[in-house]
Computed example of a mutant assay.
Amino acid sequence: MKKSAEDKTHDLKQLRKSPLATPSDLKVRATRDVGAALNAILADVFALYLKTKNFHWHMSGPHFRDYHLLFDEQALQLFAMTDPLAERVRKLGGTTLRSIGHIARNQRVLDNDADYVEPQDMLAELRDDNEVLAERLREVHELCAEYHDIASASLIEGWIDESERRTWFLFESGRNGVCSAH
Score class of each variant (00 low, 15 high):
residue 151 A to Y: 07
residue 24 S to K: 09
residue 45 V to S: 01
residue 170 L to W: 05
residue 19 P to T: 05
residue 166 R to T: 05
residue 171 F to S: 15
residue 12 L to G: 00
residue 8 K to P: 04
residue 15 L to F: 10
residue 88 R to P: 09
residue 106 N to S: 06
residue 79 F to V: 01
residue 131 E to F: 15
residue 12 L to S: 09
residue 98 R to L: 03
residue 125 E to I: 08
residue 174 G to M: 14
residue 133 L to M: 10
residue 31 T to I: 04
residue 125 E to C: 09
residue 76 L to N: 05
residue 167 T to M: 13
residue 171 F to W: 15
residue 10 H to I: 15
residue 167 T to R: 14
residue 47 A to Y: 11
residue 107 Q to A: 11
residue 161 D to Q: 12
residue 40 A to I: 00
residue 111 D to Q: 10
residue 26 L to N: 04
residue 24 S to H: 10
residue 74 Q to S: 03
residue 174 G to A: 12
residue 80 A to I: 00
residue 60 S to E: 08
residue 139 E to A: 13
residue 115 D to T: 15
residue 83 D to V: 00
residue 130 N to Q: 11
residue 161 D to L: 14
residue 72 D to W: 03
residue 125 E to R: 15
residue 159 W to Y: 11
residue 98 R to Q: 11
residue 66 D to M: 14
residue 117 V to M: 15
residue 103 I to P: 13
residue 170 L to A: 05
residue 87 E to W: 03
residue 82 T to I: 12
residue 28 V to W: 06
residue 29 R to W: 06
residue 102 H to N: 07
residue 137 L to G: 04
residue 111 D to Y: 10
residue 58 H to I: 00
residue 57 W to A: 01
residue 28 V to G: 02
residue 153 A to N: 02
residue 182 H to I: 13
residue 128 D to H: 11
residue 15 L to H: 12
residue 48 L to R: 12
residue 37 A to G: 05
residue 159 W to E: 06
residue 43 A to Q: 10
residue 133 L to H: 06
residue 70 L to V: 00
residue 140 V to S: 06
residue 176 N to D: 14
residue 29 R to N: 13
residue 62 P to F: 09
residue 20 L to E: 15
residue 36 A to T: 12
residue 66 D to Y: 07
